[in-house]
């Protein structure tokens, strides 16, 4: 169970003031989730550990740019973690290579995110994703969770690159319109 978002936001705000105890508590509350993000996207333990260190260094240095009331604390942290991991992933895999390995790994996974996302907070976005064609909803979901590039997504779904770009872009716009529907 994730801690209450406002609590995390408060710890970030204290961290912004240079409070090391708040930073320590923030780490204790959130590092398992963020390490989960790094591992899932990078799929390599050593690199995931490097990523985690970079992430918390950024959290300490950039805490002042987090403003409570806009994004939730946990969302802010997960964005930093995903950005760091995806940057490292993109820097590592030359576009077009190593996709076989990634596909194999991905195929071993049943689809836990679908089940998990249906719980609580995910209900709304899940309903909106359900309005998309299933393969397009899958592409959006796996792009987010696994950090796949367009090339990897196109390969996995056996469609041309431009088709995949269209799927994702249209998917995102439909998702936005659905989520903003009152």
């Amino acid at each position: 169970m994730a801690p209450a978002p406002d609590e995390i936001g408060e710890l970030i705000a204290h961290t912004a003031l240079g409070d090391r105890r708040a930073f320590s508590r923030l780490y204790d509350r959130t590092s398992a989730k963020l390490f989960g993000v790094c591992l899932r996207i990078l799929r390599e333990r050593m690199q995931a550990e490097d990523a985690l260190q970079e992430i918390y260094v950024k959290v300490w240095r950039n805490a002042a740019t987090f403003s409570t009331g806009r994004a939730s604390g946990m969302t802010w942290l997960i964005s930093i973690a995903r950005n760091q991991s995806i940057d490292m992933l993109r820097a590592r895999i030359p576009q077009g290579e190593a996709i076989d390995a990634v596909t194999e790994l991905a195929d071993e996974r049943p689809d836990p995110e679908r089940a998990a996302a249906s719980a609580q907070t995910g209900a709304r976005i899940d309903a909106c994703l359900d309005e998309l064609k299933p393969e397009r909803a899958d592409a959006v979901r796996s792009a987010y969770v696994e950090g796949y590039s367009y090339n990897e997504l196109a390969e996995r779904h056996s469609v041309p690159l431009n088709t995949m770009k269209t799927w994702i872009r249209r998917g995102l716009l439909s998702l936005r319109d659905c989520l903003e529907r009152p």
């Binding site: 320590s24 995110e113 995910g122």
Partner: peptide
């Protein structure tokens, strides 16, 4: 957009990092 997509992060299973990771971060920062 980060906020809109945030519920998808439910798909990340928490994994406790190695114990040494925290002291490495604090040593680097402080």
């Amino acid at each position: 957009w980060q906020e809109r997509l945030a519920p998808l992060a439910e798909g990340y299973e928490p994994v406790p990092p190695p114990v040494a990771a925290k002291s490495a971060i604090e040593a680097r920062l402080f």
